[in-house]
Design a protein around this nucleic acid. Structure first.
Lengths: 202, 202
DNA sequence: AGACGCATCCGTAATATTCCGTACCCCCAG
DNA sequence: CTGGGGGTACGGAATATTACGGATGCGTCT
């Protein structure tokens, strides 16, 4: 019998997972939280084998939360669970050390499989995530990220240049590199792509 | 005792709602569907009092589905249920005739309240949606929508003008009207806003 | 009918962006 | 140590976008 802790801000989702896991005899849900803070608080006194967490929580950055949780529960295995899988979440969670990547549209048998794999210390990556893995594994330089953020905020070349203390012309160079890396041909597409990939919020 | 039918593509969410509704004695869940087609099929032989449906389904446009369902179940009351409330969904569902607007982060008591209100024939709009209602009730002209779509697809003034058979200068006029209506000051912000409001996909 | 708001449309001139090429720094593998 | 690759940075000329201002037609309200 293994123990599991749930973190998701939607009560429905928590209830759904609990209901589903009732059908799995070797798993017992020993606690849940609707926010990062609540999770940190409750996990001080618990030591689950598995922790399933959403990355988009009202009060916490997903990957930082993951790292904090790992400090508190170093022996637990972590899985992230999300409705809209994207490359950035995947990369961050992987870096932080998550073992499995699950999506909310999986069915019962796939959840059970994923959990059993994790208990055995194996990775599990849902198809929705692995599709992303093969495509998007681009790294952006610090400067490129700053420039991307500037454009995402609706700034002009001149404004971004002023903010970064470089010429608008140089901003353009970084933008051109971004366009190439992202495989798009305009700033708007670039930002849209960044939103889809979770680099910036909509 | 009233009957309820659930439509959502995430099994977890369906399970969560069912688990939650077990705690409500005057409601019985008589069926569920994971897609629009499945819902249309199953509802041929059912006649629930309430239908709770997600608007974002893999095989169906939310508002069109709503209209189809209403033809099949003319006596049912409809509620839409969504994770990310936005102005466009709200407007479409309202136009289609939904009675209630619920979000997935509501808690149990709020769901129960909403259901009771609906059974009494009253509207219920969750706070997340009503916040939107007060801000975003803008109408866009056909030309503006076409121009917005053009920019969202990463096209230039010239390209949009060519596609719509108008001068790039006129495209700009429409864009300026859009910027004003949306309260933003650049094309990128406009597109980002359009994504957030559900006018275009990310 | 007349006045009005609103959607649609465009020309010219100022401004911003983009194209093309170039250059420096740092790191590290040959 | 030397050459190559990547990140960063910029200038001048060509091109696109924007600001400003004006025009037409089409409903509606009086």
């Amino acid at each position: 019998m293994s123990t599991l802790f749930l973190i998701d801000d939607h009560k429905i989702v928590r209830d759904g997972l609990k209901a589903m896991l009732l059908g799995k005899p070797n798993i017992q849900v020993i606690g849940e939280a609707a926010s990062g803070l609540e999770a940190l608080e409750k996990l001080k006194n618990l030591n689950p084998d598995l922790i399933l967490t959403d990355l988009k929580l009202p009060d916490a950055n997903g990957s930082e939360l993951l790292i904090e949780l790992m400090k508190i529960c170093p022996s637990a295995k972590f899985a992230i669970l999300t409705a809209d899988p994207n490359a950035t979440d995947l990369a961050r969670a992987q870096k932080a050390g998550a073992l499995a990547f699950l999506t909310k549209d999986m069915d019962t048998t796939e959840y059970f499989l994923a959990i059993d794999k994790m208990l055995a210390g194996q990775r599990y990556i849902s198809t929705a995530f692995s599709d992303i893995l093969v495509n998007d594994t681009v790294d952006y330089t610090p400067r490129e990220k700053e420039v991307l953020r500037g454009f995402s905020d609706g700034l002009s070349y001149k404004e971004i240049g002023a903010k970064l203390d470089i010429s608008p012309r140089t901003v353009e160079t970084h933008k051109n590199h971004l366009l190439e890396k992202m495989g798009v041909k305009s700033i708007v597409e670039m930002v849209r792509r960044a939103i889809r990939d979770g680099l910036v919020e909509a």
